[in-house]
Simulated assay, not measured.
Amino acid sequence: MQVTLIPSTDKPWDGIEVYSYELAKRLSKRNIKVIGIRVGIKDDVKYVNQNFKLITAGTPNYTKGLGYYYRVFRAITKNYREINSSEIIHAIGGYYSAIEFIPFKGRKIVTIIGASSLREKKKSKRIIRTIYSSLIYKFAKKYIVPNEFIYKEVKEHYHVNNLEIIPLGVDIEGLTVSERKDVLKEKLGFEPDDIVILYLGQLVHGKRLPELLTAFKKVSEKISNAKLVLVAWGYLKDQLMELATSLNIKDRVIFKKPVPYCERKYVYGAADVLTMIGDSFGDGGVSSAVLDGLGSGLPIIVARGSPNILVVKDGFNGFVVNPSNPEEIALAIMKAVENREYLGKNSKYIAKELDWDLIAEKILKVYKEIY
C-alpha cells in the first residue's frame, strides 16, 4: 500500500505537522510506502527513510490572504501523478480543501484535528466558521476526529458522515531520555535541586499566563527553589516580563526560546510539573504539549472545561483548576510538586494507551477497511 500525507515534514512544528510526521514514521516502519507533500521555495526530494519519500514543491512565496492556500493547491497539482499513484490520500485539517475537488484513483481521508468554530464565542463568527468548515470538508471517504468534542461539532454542524474517533498520539519513544533529571536541569542552566514549573506554548491571550504568573508568585513564597520556565514565543512576552517584575519574581521566571521538535524531550525531562491552563484559545483538540507531558511522566495542571481534561484526571495524573483563580492554581501546583512521583507515574500510564504505535495501527485499519 502507498499513502500520501498532506502536509508533511521531517521537522514538525505545529500540531498538524506533528500528527503527519509521527504517522509517517509509524506507517513507513510497517512497510507502507509514504509520500509526503510539503510547500517550499524550491523543488526537492528527500528520503527520510527507505519507505518515506518527502517531496518539497517549490511555489511562489505568497504569505498573505489566500496565498498559502494557493501554494498548497499548486504543490498538489505539481505532484498530481505521484499522488495519484497512492491508494490512500490522507490530508490533515484544512489542507484537505486543496484536494477536495481533485479526482484521484485513491481514497481520500481527512483528519479534522481541530474544529475552528469551537474557538469562537460570538455567535455570528461561529456561524461563519461553521459554514466555512462545512464547505471545505466534503467528499472524503472517511473522517477521523480525535475526541468527542470535535466529533459532536462535526457531526451536528459540518453535515458529514463516516466519522471515527481516533485520539491524537503520544510519542513515548521520542520523549525518552537517558540522563537524570538533575543533569538535564544543569544543562539548561538551572540548579540540580530547582523545582521547574514548565509552560510550553505560545505567549498569547487565552493561555491564562497572567494568572499563571500571579499563582507562581504564591508558589514561590512556599517553595523557595521553584522556577517558572516558559519555553515559548508570542506578543505577550514584554507584558509578562513587566508583570514578573511588578510581582518581584523576575529572577525566578525564565523565558526560553522554543526548541526543535527532536530536542523537546530534554525540556520536559528537566521539568517537575507542566502547566497548561488556557481555556479560550482552543479548537477542541488536546494540547500537543499536554500529550508530550504525559509521555514524559509529568504531573499536569489544566483548565476546567478544556479538552485537556480528556487526558488529565483530577488527582490522578494532575489537577483540573479554575484558570481565573490564582489561589486554586497555586494550590494545585504545590500539590503536584509534593506528589509528582505518583502523579507522573499515572501520566505515563495514560500515555501508554495513546502511544503513537497504537494510534497508527488504528489509522492503518481504517485505510484497509475503505480501500
Rank of each mutant, 00 (worst) to 15 (best):
S117W: 05
T214C: 11
I165G: 06
I197P: 14
E148N: 08
S117M: 13
G234F: 00
Y21A: 02
R107S: 13
S20I: 03
L203C: 08
Y137V: 07
G206L: 06
D292Q: 10
G15H: 04
R304T: 12
I370K: 03
G15A: 00
L188V: 02
I55H: 03
V72M: 13
R180M: 13
H90T: 06
G114V: 05
T63G: 11
P167W: 00
I300T: 09
M241C: 07
R74Q: 11
R264I: 14
T275G: 12
I16V: 13
V3C: 12
E120C: 12
V48T: 03
N147L: 05
S85V: 03
D193W: 02
E173K: 15
N49W: 02
I83S: 02
D251R: 02
H205M: 09
R180V: 15
P258G: 11
F316M: 13
V170F: 08
R119K: 10
V72G: 10
G282C: 15
Y80G: 00
D238C: 07
L209N: 03
F101Y: 12
E100Y: 13
E153K: 07
D171Y: 02
I195W: 09
I109R: 07
I83P: 09
V160S: 03
K265P: 09
A244T: 15
I99E: 12
I301P: 07
N79S: 05
L310Q: 12
K352L: 14
K335N: 14
S8M: 06
N31T: 06
L331S: 14
V259M: 13
L298D: 09
F52P: 00
S324A: 15
A215P: 15
K352S: 14
K185C: 00
L163K: 02
K11T: 09
V110K: 01
L188F: 08
L213K: 08
G40I: 01
Q50C: 02
S178A: 15
P299D: 10
N79A: 05
L5E: 01
A115D: 04
G67W: 02
T275A: 13
N317I: 10
